[in-house]
Design a protein around this nucleic acid. Structure first.
Lengths: 219, 219
DNA sequence: TAGATTGTTAATCGATTAACAATC
DNA sequence: TAGATTGTTAATCGATTAACAATC
């Protein structure tokens, strides 16, 4: 679809799978590397060659949003990067808060892989008096009792949930009451939350369990 | 299937999806909680009620391995826990090593969610002279140049890969050369490794990107 | 034009959900 | 027996892969 000579990005509501979205970020990452190498034009085959993804998958994923390449030629690297960023909402800074400033939270806040996805972690929260008032990198740690009022004032909508399993649900509830709409949950619990709140789960124990299972059957 | 009056666990090679395996671990986790509460018998409905999973999914998942419940009654909690552990290979300790003892690796090694999946992280490796010789909890940090010989001597088969993105592939190569068969990769790169090596990926940037995308479309 | 590569439709595959007979 | 709940088969749904016409 073309409008004024530029490809139009179709913003779809729902219906696009998380798998597609997550793959798009791996494409983006690889494209950035190629761009740094000075590559200007790239084919679907080249983009996916190191990603364990078939080229058709790449074209299919993009096709949910529009057509961004030139038949017979390929894709303009720089333009495609901009397009994918716009599709994913990574062209603007997204502010987020961190609930739980333990080891995992601290690792997360300083995770180098975040460069390029344009996140701004504006505050961290913990219930440990020894941590409150300190800084994690450039992020200040506040008393978790003030998390609700902070969310309301700052109107932040995304949170990383890194508190222990047994308090995850109650902390999540207070996040949502204050207006958080997207949570990336690292606690090994399935959160029960109202519709309209998007929850992504990173369950490291089950990822490891999956690897262990494969070790067992490959004996 | 019954053999000598006890349900037989069918060990399948491949063909069982990672989704099923990962869900099994969430079942296990919930069953452990119920067991601590003194619950002895549980239905598929009860197991899944807090897991955002339909009860049929639970029964289907189990059915890949056998039948472990009593029709009209439910499942014996303690017995089911033991069975799932055995199916997943969590009834025995699995030894693993940590490659990359940065913040993420340190968080991982001390992750409380690991209790219950029976992992023994027997050594950590890093290239930072300031870290080598130190301990992470009870795990000693060694020079990463010795990781190959350590793997060969100890015959460990599972590794957590927490090194920076740009060295992930080369470290993974040396892990595999030394005999590692299962890797949980936290670096934001797609590893290219020979068949027979199982790689699980935890890509935190793309998980966050997925949440951000959902924020964007829910506006 | 001939060759290359996209964008999209169709076919396949696999996973989830529904339904229900078996049976406690 | 009547009610409950499993285990499994069948139906549905969605995602991946294949194929190919469009077109640069």
């Amino acid at each position: 679809m073309k409008v004024n000579g530029t490809a139009m990005i179709v913003t779809r509501k729902y219906s696009i799978s998380p798998e597609t979205i997550k793959r798009m970020i791996t494409y983006l990452r690889y494209l950035e590397i190629q761009k740094k190498k000075g590559i200007r034009i790239i084919s679907s085959k080249d983009v996916t060659s190191y990603l364990n993804v078939p080229p058709e998958q790449f074209r299919k994923d993009l096709s949910f949003f529009g057509g961004f390449g030139k038949r017979g030629v390929g894709y303009e690297v720089e333009r495609l990067i901009k397009t994918i960023k716009k599709i994913l909402g990574l062209d603007r800074k997204t502010r987020a808060i961190l609930a739980g400033a333990g080891r995992l939270g601290a690792a997360l806040i300083q995770y180098p892989g975040f460069s390029g996805i344009n996140m701004d972690i504006i505050a961290a929260f913990d219930n440990d008096a020894g941590k409150i008032g300190k800084q994690l990198k450039s992020t200040r740690i506040y008393d978790i009792r003030n998390i609700g009022s902070f969310i309301r004032k700052s109107r932040v909508r995304v949170a990383f949930l890194c508190v222990p399993a047994d308090s995850a649900q109650s902390v999540a509830d207070s996040l949502v009451r204050a207006g958080i709409k997207g949570i990336l949950n690292f606690a090994p619990v399935a959160l029960v939350l109202p519709a309209g709140v998007y929850v992504g789960n990173v369950d490291m124990a089950s990822e490891i369990g999956n690897v262990v299972y494969h070790m067992k059957i490959t004996n």
